[in-house]
Amino acid sequence: MSATTADVRDAGRHFVTAGRDALVRVWHTPGAKLALIGFALFVLVALIGPWIALYGPFDRLRLANGELARSVPPSLEHPFGTTSYGRDVLSQVIWGTRRTLVVGFAGALVTVVIGVNIGLIAGFAGGRVDSLLMRITDSAYALPFLPFAIVLVGILGRSDMVLLLAIAALFWRTTARVVRAQVLSLKQRPFVRAAVVGGARPRRVLYRHIAPNVVSLAMLYGLFLVTEAVIAEASLSFLGLAPPDSISWGTIMFDAFTSTELNTTWWWAFFPGLAIMLFVLCMSLLGRAYESAQAHRWEARQP
């Protein structure tokens, strides 16, 4: 087994160096700087949110005259306004950043790891294993996400783990398919045949020779999966499937919707929605930049 752990460690090391190289290249890709700065700001807010937010997410604020600060429109004091319960929307959005990003990244990571491995094994093994795994992949495509997640929460209860499970159980499908396709063509490349002739066993061929060559593709899908996971988290939270007392951009909108006062307090749902849109936009732009940076490198490599 030690050979396998070493191989997996090798693959992991490739992931790290590929990530570092990619970051440098993406920075020099036109149009990526803004997205990268935006992304860095979101991460910063997620990290230090609790220290920069003026109020707690559930603090009920009062006006100078001692009345509850209900539904105050955006002003200098409350830039994003307050909710009908007297909570500061800006502080809620800041607090919610962390949960949104954690669910987004953890969901994407788990999903990519599952998808890449299923794709690698299906493409490499071929035959019955491939057919079986691809039929499972088709089944994952056949399941509608929201009903699946609602039923899952209904059975297992509302928790972060169940949210991640719902995301990871379905979203690996696309990654698995593209990685499998890539493996099918890599498998025929002379360097893979050379590895077989060199005496490498199947597991070594797969994780040492093929896997590192799908890393950049996996990174790309990972980036896009972050946006999918963030949107999925927001959708589920908006439907009230997030654990109680948790705060994310989706739960803020859920509260806004259930308060029935959305017609008078547009800012309550607008600002968390704007945050989701900006974050997803940043990630998509980053994905595109990474894609074109990779394409550029592939071109440069041609003799």
Partner: peptide, 27 residues
């Protein structure tokens, strides 16, 4: 052992020369 036709594609692009040559010994 075998040497393949296409020198541009018979070496793993992700392995340094040292690692590529050591591969059969390790495997």
């Amino acid at each position: 052992q075998m040497i393949f036709q296409d020198p541009y594609d018979s070496l793993n692009p992700r392995l340094r020369v040292r690692d590529a040559v050591a591969e059969p010994l390790i495997a």
